[in-house]
């Protein structure tokens, strides 16, 4: 019972994830179509290809979800078309945003297809056939050629990267952007007040209790520095605090 519930939950989560991805994909496609329709005069190849990159990113995400283990339970589910009808089905039309008005004989073979299209399948078979008849030597030759090209490109890229990194290293090497001593000075100043105590540089160790308030600076933190009557009161309380520094000792 519990197991079943868990499975159902998992299925639901998977479907939600897939739905999200498909919706992402849909909006991306819509955006591309929109772009093509409105900007066909100004669009350039890089932006066009960027849009394709977005599409392929969404497709990869979708296939990742489908490959994930949680999606395994989907394999055991069957979609069975029970009834085909030529009459318009309002719910279906609404669900598909008006694209599929009825579950007809025309559409079902396309929508429920789990294999590639016959044409594509045929071409794939052709290729497979060609590959299987290829002799071992020719195949090796092709592979060697291809490896050569790829390694050449790899060399060019890695050389470029080295140059680029060397340059950026050099430029940062010439001008250090931080200084450990400064870091330590700042952190100690903020943490312990080192270098911030006016005239009491070596007060830390000795009994600082008695002399502190008298020498310490008047707090400049009043509500506003311009309100003059406030300042004397702050000093007064300061002195008072000094007298009462051990209020609980009798």
């Amino acid at each position: 019972m519990n197991m079943q519930q868990r499975e159902e939950k998992q299925l639901e989560a998977t479907i939600v994830a897939i739905l999200n991805r498909v919706n992402d994909l849909k909006t991306a496609i819509q955006a591309l179509i929109n772009k093509l329709e409105t900007e066909y005069e100004t669009i350039n190849w890089p932006t066009f290809l960027d849009n394709y990159a977005i599409l392929s990113g969404h497709l990869t995400g979708l296939s990742k979800i489908l490959q994930a283990e949680q999606a395994a339970s989907l394999r055991s589910r069957i979609v069975l078309p029970l009834q085909l009808s030529c009459e318009r089905d309002e719910t279906l039309a609404h669900l598909t945003e008006g694209r599929v008005p009825a579950c007809t004989h025309d559409l079902v073979p396309d929508l429920l297809r789990t294999k590639p299209e016959p044409q594509a399948e045929q071409r794939l078979q052709q290729f497979n056939h060609k590959a299987s008849t290829l002799s071992y030597d020719t195949a090796q030759k092709h592979i060697a050629q291809f490896t050569k090209v790829v390694s050449h490109v790899w060399e060019i890229i890695s050389k470029g990267r080295e140059d680029w990194e060397g340059e950026s290293m050099r430029s940062t090497g010439m001008q250090p952007t931080h200084n450990i001593a400064d870091t330590h000075a700042l952190v100690t100043a903020v943490g312990t007040g080192k270098g911030l105590r006016p005239g009491m540089a070596n007060m830390v160790g000795q009994g600082a209790a008695g002399m502190g308030p008298a020498r310490g600076p008047a707090p400049q933190l009043g509500p506003a520095p311009s309100t003059l009557p406030k300042a004397p009161s702050a000093i007064k309380t300061n002195i008072k605090a000094a007298n009462q520094i051990h209020p609980y000792q009798r």
Binding site: A189, V190, G193, L196, R197, A208, A209, G212, P213, G216, P217, P219, Q220, L221, N238, A241, A242, Q244, I245, P247
Partner: peptide, 8 residues
Amino acid sequence: GCRIEFEY
């Protein structure tokens, strides 16, 4: 009875 230690 608090004393000012430092400010910044």
